[in-house]
């Protein structure tokens, strides 16, 4: 009788001794999964350059739509000067890489505005994360949009600690503003340089320059685009510079340049562009 009681007690102790820690481990594991697991949805956040509207990337997106194996939905966000956001379009339920175009009511050029715009981008970004529950994303910036994105990554992304950036591509972004002289450093560059340690170390970065001649794409000096290396090189996981020449390489044509569209498809979209498609594009272009 006594031994039976003892055995039952022992059994209960063993069961409790297994179940409680197992339950605790299970929960800590679920929390870990929640933090580590990347969401399937990873939007591509596009920021147009100065003076451009929310429709700046329409051509690019329709070009991508022709080439990409999958259709992507587009959400357009305009950030007002008071930080409120206004959206048009929607994200399709099953779309894993929707495009989100973030533009600004005040879309003027100049360092002061770019600083403001990167702050506005941050406000919009937090809203987007809250609404769409993604925890990683890629970004594409054209011209000054690249500056806004870079500043945002350096200064503000850490305010959303659960979200990480996979890839950044900037197209003809003047990291040293309009300055052609390699020796002169603008205030904009100095700021980007100063905060460069804030860049996520896991970032994969592509900087694309377009050139009509040996010096520029007609608007942005080649040397200014090249200044990206002082900010990104050895500071992020990968930094790649690409120079595109040939037809449609004027500054404002670059986002719909077929070679650049192919590069975006290849590097930013997660789905595989077939090599033939990329080659085909080049042929059309040449």
């Amino acid at each position: 009788m006594k031994s039976k009681l003892l055995r039952t007690t022992l059994l209960i102790i063993v069961i409790i001794g297994i179940c409680i820690p197992a339950y605790q481990w299970n929960h800590s594991n679920i929390v870990r999964l929640r933090n580590a697991g990347k969401t399937r949805m990873a939007p591509i956040i596009m920021v147009p350059g100065s003076s451009a509207t929310k429709n700046r990337f329409d051509n690019l997106i329709s070009e991508l739509g022709h080439e990409a194996p999958q259709q992507h939905s587009v959400l357009k966000v305009v950030v007002k000067t008071d930080g409120k956001i206004e959206t048009t379009g929607s994200i399709a339920r099953n779309d894993q890489q929707p495009f989100i175009v973030v533009s600004f009511q005040n879309n003027k050029d100049g360092k002061k505005n770019i600083d403001l715009q990167s702050n506005w981008l941050n406000l919009a970004f937090k809203e987007l994360v809250k609404t769409y529950h993604f925890n990683h994303f890629s970004a594409l910036g054209h011209s000054n949009g690249g500056l806004i994105l870079t500043l945002f990554l350096e200064k503000y992304l850490k305010e959303s600690p659960t979200v990480s950036i996979d890839k950044l591509m900037t197209i003809a972004t003047p990291y040293n503003m309009e300055e052609e002289n390699l020796k002169k450093k603008t205030a904009m560059f100095n700021e980007l340089y100063k905060y460069r340690d804030g860049l996520p170390k896991s970032l994969v970065m592509y900087s694309i320059a377009g050139t009509e001649n040996y010096n520029s794409d007609g608007t942005v000096p080649y040397n200014s685009v090249n200044f990206a290396k002082y900010i990104f090189q050895d500071n992020v996981k990968n930094f790649t510079e690409i120079t595109v020449t040939g037809a449609n390489t004027a500054h404002s044509d670059l986002p719909q340049n077929k070679q650049i569209v192919a590069l975006i498809g290849q590097y930013i979209l997660r789905e595989n562009f077939k090599p033939s498609q990329i080659q085909g594009n080049n042929k059309n272009n040449n």
Binding site: I30, L33, R34, G37, T39, R40
Partner: peptide, 9 residues
């Protein structure tokens, strides 16, 4: 299923 559970807790 896993993704759903992680998102919805």
């Amino acid at each position: 299923n896993l993704e759903y559970a992680i998102q919805h807790g």
